[in-house]
Design a protein around this nucleic acid. Sequence first.
DNA 1: CTTTAATTCATACGTCCGTTTAAACCATAC
DNA 2: GTATGGTTTAAACGGACGTATGAATTAAAG
Lengths: 221, 221
Amino acid sequence: MAQQADTKERILDAAEALFSEHGFVNTSMRSITQSANVNLAAVNYHFGSKEELIKAVFARRLLPLNEERIRRLDDVLAQGVTLERLLEAFIAPHLELSQDHEEVGDRFVRLIGRGYTDHAEFLRDHIHQLNKPCVARFKEAFAAELPHLPRKELSWRLHFLVGAVAHTMAGPDMIRLMAGRRISDHGNAQALVQRLIPFLAAGLQAPLPESLPDLELRHAG
Amino acid sequence: MAQQADTKERILDAAEALFSEHGFVNTSMRSITQSANVNLAAVNYHFGSKEELIKAVFARRLLPLNEERIRRLDDVLAQGVTLERLLEAFIAPHLELSQDHEEVGDRFVRLIGRGYTDHAEFLRDHIHQLNKPCVARFKEAFAAELPHLPRKELSWRLHFLVGAVAHTMAGPDMIRLMAGRRISDHGNAQALVQRLIPFLAAGLQAPLPESLPDLELRHAG
DNA sequence: CTTTAATTCATACGTCCGTTTAAACCATAC
DNA sequence: GTATGGTTTAAACGGACGTATGAATTAAAG
């Protein structure tokens, strides 16, 4: 069957690396296949189109990532909930990817950031679908821990939260952060999580603003 | 001299609208000039290149915007500083643009969000240069108001802050928010500012995380 | 060995892009 | 009127892109 059975994986790896560095539109199929040592037509053969390739790149990492988030959420729910632990369960898996896969990880950390910030409609929808079940469960947990917060206000604050995290992950500083010694200890990513958590926890717990018109929000996460 | 003296302005308006809706790479010179009822070559004649056009679009709004921010900062410094007032001076001018220019405003609100989240290096640098003096002054004011916060921690938290605001401005929800009745009252933008401020103020004032390695950060703003 | 089906390959197609060119245009100065 | 110089115009250039095609290649099945 397969002449080089790992062709799909090699394409996904190359695409992930190039997307995270140059963005989606500025990465051509030719540069991807060249970097993967694969024929130009291989992408369309294995994935159908560039758009489907992009979605596959995200699905490959986001599905296990959300499983891990749910796993940690269940741990927190079993062992005793605090806002800080919920936040850690929610954001740490993304940032810690960089340790588990050596170089692969921090590439994808930036790529996820791009997924949230980039403006291709199909991609936002795709990521939203992948995250929906996980985000829904976390939203319930946050709501239970923040009973003083109206549902609408919680949605907005989770929206701000995602913005802060995505911007941090997508930013060029992320590269320099991860460039330090990272092997074998969870140093920098862990440190970043520890910096984000107090900021976000305090933001979520902030007192309500004075009475406001009801602004609808589509979703968060 | 000028056959149609407003050619440059018409190009800037059309480019701003299209950039904010479709992003920079997905907006062609042909669509810009067509939308502006201008010849294709006009952009290169008046601006030199697409890249210079993008920079001009940002400079046209960002320069007055930062002047307004400084003006409000001076007011706050004169009348009595609080963290909330500093935050309002820092972020409100961006979000309130939508009232001053009717339709123009919320276009540019989203566009600024894109400027922060999009990943063209020249654009990040250009925006950074435009904002630098203003951000430096605000950073001093924040530092004075948050004496317990080490400088490095402040930089990180301002980075999170910018992420939350930019993500909010760039997001698709912004469109729907602004779509409501907005004329003649500062309703929705004001409401959004009032929601952001408690979240951000609490985040900035959060207790320090436990001891961490010193992570460098390049800049914020 | 032959057949078969999955994969790889070189190549080409049509399109759209940013930019350039050189001629046409037009308000003003002389 | 005629010359001048900023501006607009139509047309083209070369290149890069995503995708499609049909033949070559490969590994497994009969």
